[in-house]
Design a protein around this nucleic acid. Structure first.
Length: 424
RNA sequence: GCGAUCGUAGCUCAGCUGGUUAGAGCGCCGGUUUGUGGUACCGGAGGUCGUGGGUUCAAGCCCCAUCGGUCGCCCCA
């Protein structure tokens, strides 16, 4: 008989078990809790959209659109794309669902995203992000609130220590255009000394040369003009209000005049929370203001600002979430199984995490309980057995008070709880 | 798309300059011991050494190709 070949998992996808899944869930749960503190509504948007949603909004020349999207034709011949980011889909929903009536709208979501990239540390083809957006607010206060929200999230995840907020402004459209022209002039003047990669960037996305890692580019990038000289008065005032707001909220940051964002629609505030603890993937949370996007997609002129954070990356940084330490219920002999199950129900109904092994003698089950890090063992015996019908034995590192509570609970409820089991 | 590196049991790995029947720990299965209770002992199953070619009397080990993992470039969360 031919051997059945098990299909392999798709490159860049993950299967998570135990601690890894717990870490992931803890990040999401913390986000969901903090997001409520800031009054962000939960939204859900589709995992796939018309290709045009992403192709138009992200910019045709970006890597994401030109080579990283999972795009396919459905059976009706429509071109669909698995979302490579959240913002474009949310902007589409804002327009098509009439959410303008709620502006300024504060929304949050999380879920899977897809990009066709070579996987490496902290990078996957199916990855997951937290996302927060404020749509319909042109005020710098919106930028500040999002940043303070992000900062609190990282603090509550316990990773603020190793993570730094880096901040920049790309100015308004006039500032950005003037700066961009100046940059191009600067780079063209040094064209002969640029790396091949940066020569290509010069045509597609000259801003990106600023954060090139190629040593040949560094002197040229470092001597390039900052945006500061090209900021309009309005843009400068806006940026000052953002930094002042952060200061008032006690959020530390560093200015990174070389920070640019890859996607075309960014204006004004651009920021990244970065760490050196994730190998080449330094960015843990990033975002900025995208005042032009919704208009670009055929909607009304709508200012907006938002950020996204990589759940996998955050999950790698946090301490392992505390393990659930169950009470193990062990019947002393096989005929006590039903009685043990009754005890289990009693514990669980009282909100006490408890488990039992499905096989093995009592001795073996004790070993299983230890391996699972049980907090204590509830031995279930025949009525009148020496040592008591129910006996709770605490294990190493237990919470004595909790064990005592269980002891009392079972003993006081014991008679009635097991009356109907036929086990007595 | 490019580069580096790795690929031996379910898992983590050992396997000397190529040389008999490929090993360990953990896990799994069975048993012994104990018997108001955890850390003991014995045994067993399980591997076409990623796959396909090649070199050689002989390949887990050398060469080529291919697939996959990991890390990096690009780009990004």
């Amino acid at each position: 008989m031919a051997k059945i070949e098990t299909p392999r998992p798709i490159r860049g996808t993950q299967d998570m078990l135990g601690e890894q899944a717990d870490r992931f869930a803890h990040v999401v749960a913390t986000f969901d809790r903090v997001r409520r503190l800031y009054g962000f509504q939960r939204i859900e948007v589709p995992v796939f959209e018309s290709t045009a949603v992403f192709a138009r909004s992200l910019g045709e020349s970006t890597d994401v659109v030109s080579k990283e999207m999972y795009t396919f034709e459905d059976r009706g011949g429509d071109s669909l794309t698995l979302r490579p980011e959240f913002t474009a889909g949310i902007a589409r929903a804002y327009i098509t669902e009439g959410w303008q009536q709620y502006a300024p709208l504060k929304v949050a979501t999380h879920g899977p995203l897809f990009r066709y990239e070579r996987p490496q540390k902290g990078r996957f083809r199916q990855f997951h992000q937290l996302d927060a957006e404020i749509i319909g607010a042109a005020e710098p206060g919106a930028d500040v609130e999002l940043l303070v929200f992000a900062d609190q999230l990282l603090k509550e995840l316990g990773i603020a220590e190793g993570v730094t907020l880096t901040l920049n402004t790309l100015g308004d459209a006039a500032s950005r255009d003037a700066w961009r022209d100046a940059l191009v002039r600067h780079f063209v003047a040094h064209k002969n000394d640029l790396s091949e990669d940066s020569l290509a960037r010069l045509d597609r996305n000259p801003l990106r040369i600023l954060d090139s890692k190629d040593p040949r580019d560094r002197p040229i990038a470092d001597s390039a003009p900052d945006i500061d000289a090209y900021l309009t008065d309005e843009a400068r005032a806006f940026f000052e209000k953002v930094t002042d707001g952060l200061k008032a909220a006690g959020v530390n940051h560093v200015r990174n005049a070389r920070l640019v964002r890859g996607l075309d629609y960014y204006r004004h505030t651009a920021f990244e929370f970065v760490t050196d603890r994730l190998g080449a993937q330094g960015t843990v949370l990033g975002g900025g203001r995208y005042d032009g996007l919704i208009e670009n997609m055929g909607g009304p002129v709508t200012p907006a600002v938002g950020w996204a954070a990589g759940i996998e990356r955050l999950a790698m940084l946090i301490d392992a979430p505390a393990q659930q330490r169950p009470i193990f219920v062990i019947p002393d002999a096989p005929h006590l199984t039903d009685k043990a199950n009754a005890a289990l129900s009693l514990l669980r109904n009282a909100g006490i995490a408890s488990e039992t092994a499905f096989r093995g003698n009592a001795k073996r089950q004790v070993e299983v309980a230890n391996k699972k890090g049980a907090q204590g063992i509830l031995f279930v015996r025949d009525a009148g057995a020496t040592g008591g019908e129910f006996y709770v034995r605490p294990l190493l590192g237990n919470d004595i008070e909790e064990v005592r509570r269980i002891h009392d609970l079972v003993r006081s409820a014991g008679i009635d709880a097991f009356a109907g089991t036929g086990a007595r």
